Simulated assay, not measured.
Amino acid sequence: MKWRRSKADREEAAAPAEAAPEGAPGSSDAAAAGTDELEDAQAVADRAAAVAAEAEAERQRTAALAREARRRREGPFDAEEVSEEEAARPRVDLGALRLPAVQGMELRLEMEEGTQRVIGAVVVLAGSTLQLQAFAAPRTEGIWDEVRAEIRSQVARQGGAAEDGEGPFGPELLARLPMRTEDGRTGARAVRFTGVDGPRWFVRAVVGGRAAVDPAAWAPLERLLRGVVVVRGADAMAPRDLLPLKLPPQDQARPAGARPDGAPADGAADAAAGPAEAAPADAAGPDAPVRPTGDVGAPPPGTPDGEDPLGPLDPFRRGPEITERR
């Protein structure tokens, strides 16, 4: 038997299906598919960001290991790492810091007002300055990244500017600090902040003068910093506590080649240790930048009287000092 569909049946079969009303079964399939696609895209972006962050963290760990390996080879050295050759090199003993005795350098020691303890050393060489302080640090990690961020914030609060850079010791900051010139005009002075993380110690170095911006002027101070030996000691100390410094032995306060009786030897530089002058300074942590006052004029605008938020050590001002020219 054969069945024949009517014309109406054929037209109904050929007609397109009507859209299902909203809320009917299957109406949300397309929307759900779109949401899934958005969620999948977000998940991919999150995974990519996590991979990038992990890669950056690994890059930083590798760079830190490379810096530590170079520090062990070239300095600054921990007292327990010094080779016999380095140990024989002439150095000025300041307690926690032992500085290479470099021809032509002048050494100034900053004293804390009241206690008269030595809290930092400033080396003046060829018109530039290198200011050094040593601090206790945790056994398992360095503190320079954290300190650098704090210095950047303090510089900004004082109306200065700081930009990140990469130097021979790793990440550093090049800052421009506000100042007033002797004729009362407002200007800015370039200062470079660098830091070295060692085994349970941290050295903060502040570079002023031409060496802050001129690689050729920075080179001799870089070599001097490489030759520094840090004597951490075994005493328990809180992170960021200043490592104790002291006045150098009397014989090391004489110019190179001077005889014990004080008369210069043949060919020796004709300079002697200068008298200690009054220059008060307060204790500061490793995150305290340097305020360029002293011979460059008054404190920056906006600095309250009696407040020194950018720290006490001032490489442009003469303070209590041991002066040694070689």
Rank of each mutant, 00 (worst) to 15 (best):
Q116D: 14
G262K: 08
M237N: 03
R232M: 10
P286I: 09
R10P: 12
L97Q: 06
A273K: 07
R71Y: 04
D314I: 07
A212E: 03
A17G: 10
A31K: 15
D266I: 15
I151G: 00
P255D: 13
Q42T: 10
R204S: 13
R10M: 13
D314Y: 04
L243F: 10
G23K: 05
E68R: 08
D241P: 00
A45I: 02
R254E: 04
V206W: 00
V229G: 11
E18F: 12
A137N: 06
E324T: 05
A190L: 05
R73D: 10
G319N: 06
L247W: 12
R176E: 14
A234Q: 07
A272H: 13
A161P: 00
W144P: 06
V123A: 15
E163A: 15
Q252V: 02
A276L: 09
A48F: 01
P248G: 05
E22A: 14
R5I: 02
Q158G: 14
E146W: 01
Q103T: 15
K7L: 10
E80G: 15
Q158H: 14
P244R: 12
A50L: 05
P320G: 05
K246Q: 06
G208E: 08
E222G: 11
D241N: 12
A161C: 06
G114K: 15
A45G: 01
D78F: 04
P299F: 02
R291V: 14
K246V: 01
D93R: 01
T115Y: 02
A258E: 07
Q103I: 13
D164W: 13
